[in-house]
Structure formats: structure tokens, C-alpha cells
Amino acid sequence: MTLDLPFIWAGIIALAVLMYVLLDGFDLGIGILFPFATPQERDVMMESVAPIWDGNETWLVLGGGGMLAAFPFAYGALMPALYGPILIMLLALILRGVAFEFRHHGRRRGKAFWTAAFVGGSLAATLAQGLALGGFIQGVTLAGKAFAGGPLDWLTPYSAVVAVGLVAGYALLGATWIVWRTEGELQAKARRWAWQSMAVTAALLAAVSLATLVVHPRVVARWGFGDGGFDLATLLPLTPIPLVGIAGLAIVAWGLGRRHHVTPFLGSYLVFFSGYLGLAVSFFPNIVPYDMTFRQAANADNALALMLVGVAILLPAILGYTVWVYWLFRGKVGTGAGYH
């Protein structure tokens, strides 16, 4: 039996990116929600993610490093194409990353500065990821296997809508995380944030979904539309994807209404999962839309095979201790009783 290595690796990279979005999404969301919280609440919000944010962000390194190692041609085409948003994201992640420590070492003005850096960094990183995603979905101009477009190809009204939508989505993840991990006044506030961000997320998710259908004919065809009508046989097998998203929104709303703690967070995960699947279906098997498939981008088979052995051993261990660390820091975070 021979393994389809490029296919397996496409799955691994997709998993890494999904893990990144689901895990770093809520801690970026917390930064986005920071301006609406009191100083005491901010400390609690930050404390709820302080032990885990670094591990969350490591999935971004696995997504990037893994793509470099498994699909070097895709990496070599996408990174120059998305130079602007990637660099903005990196700079923003630096500012918000150091803010976790610096905020508490700064005195009054220093703390205010690093609070602003945490907010600005979280927001800018999210916008940049949205712009990169938007630029990616629109397609990348290639000559052979190299990027051949302009430096601002990624900046369009479409990618701007995706970016704002991602801000709302991460805010939803952040708000429902706070609902889960805190109690009292902050939790009640987070419920309001969750309602608001859910409404915006739903609206923008619908807008992006429709806009994606007109952004490239390949996407339209994949979903069965085109030529003045649509092909039900193509569309029907894909309908569960948007339905999962709608179910996710309903679960968030139901959980918030019933004052559940965990349910809204899980619902928001379903929303992201549905959006992610919807995108993946739209451009699969392209890894650089719409002229490079994952097979064309793949690394040498002996490199993929060696890494697969490593992943088979190490990824279960990583998932194991990640779950353990989350378990260790489970439960409600102190609600301000600890200081003053």
C-alpha cells in the first residue's frame, strides 16, 4: 500500500490552520474586546489566556513552517503575494505578544501604552489575517510557480469585508470564551458582546459567502451555480456546510439566552468550522488559488514521508499535553478578588 503523501499533508496543514484559527482566535478576540472592559476586567480577561496564548500561536508557526516544508512552492508563491498583510500580522503579533508580560511591568503610563498595544496588535493582526484570507480567495497571479502579481493585489473591497468579518468572528470567539471562563458582572457583559458580535458575524458571513460566489468563476462552478442556472446535484451534497454554520449561530443564541456557560463557545466553534469548510471546498484542490494544486506544490516524497513519521509520533503527544495544559487551567478565572 502506498500512501498519498501530498493528500495527507494537505490534511495536516489544513488541520494546523484550523487549530490556529480556533485557538488563537479567541485570545485575539479578547484583545479586540479589551476597549469595552474596565481595567480590572481587562486583567481578568488577560489572565484567562495568559498561560495558553503562546501554545495557541505556535499553531501559526506549524501552519507556516509546515507549509514551507510540505508545500514549498505554495509557500514561495503565497508569501510574496501576501507580503503586506503577512508583515503587518507579524508586527502586530509582536506588539500584542510582548504586551502579556510588559503590561504588568509597566508603571502607569507604561501599562496604558501596552494595553493600547495589546488592543491595536490584536485588531491589526486579525485585520491582516482577514486581508490575507481575502487576497488568497480572490486568487494569486502566477508565472510558472512564482508570484507575478502586484504588491497590493490583496487590497480590494472584498478582502476588506473578509477582514471586518474576521474581526467580528474573533470577537465572538473571545466573548463566548469570557462567558465560559468568568462569572459575575464581566460574564454578563461578555454575553452582551457575544450577542452583538454574533449579529455582525452572521451578517458579514452571509455577505462574504455571497461575495465569494462572484469573486471567481471556479468557486461559482464548485457550488453548482453558473450558466444562468444551477446544478442541484452539485449543490446538494454541499448544503450541510452552510447548515452547520446556521446551526452554530442558533446554538450560540440558545446558549446565551439560557445563560449557559460553555454552549455559546462551542456554537461559535461550529460557525468557524462551517466557514472554514466552505472555503476549503471552494478552492480544493488548489493550494494557491486558482493555478496551483497541492500536488503541484508538494515537496519531494522522501521529505514528506520523513515528516509524516515525525507527525505520527509527535502530533498526538502535542495534542495530549495541550489538552492537559487546558485541563490544568480549567475553571473560572478569579473575578478581581485577588488584588486591591
Binding site: 508557526v61 513552517g65 522522501n302 502535542i318
Partner: peptide, 21 residues
């Protein structure tokens, strides 16, 4: 990448997650 790509991937898998967690 066909040569040192796996080395960089192994750095993430064996070290970064361990350190961060």
C-alpha cells in the same frame, strides 16, 4: 525545502510546542 524543510518542521514539532505549553 526538499532538504532542510523537514528540519524546520521538526523544530516546531519537537521544540516550539513543548516550550510554549
Amino acid at each position: 525545502a526538499p532538504v532542510i524543510g523537514p528540519l524546520l518542521a521538526f523544530e516546531v514539532l519537537t521544540a516550539f510546542f513543548l516550550e510554549a505549553s
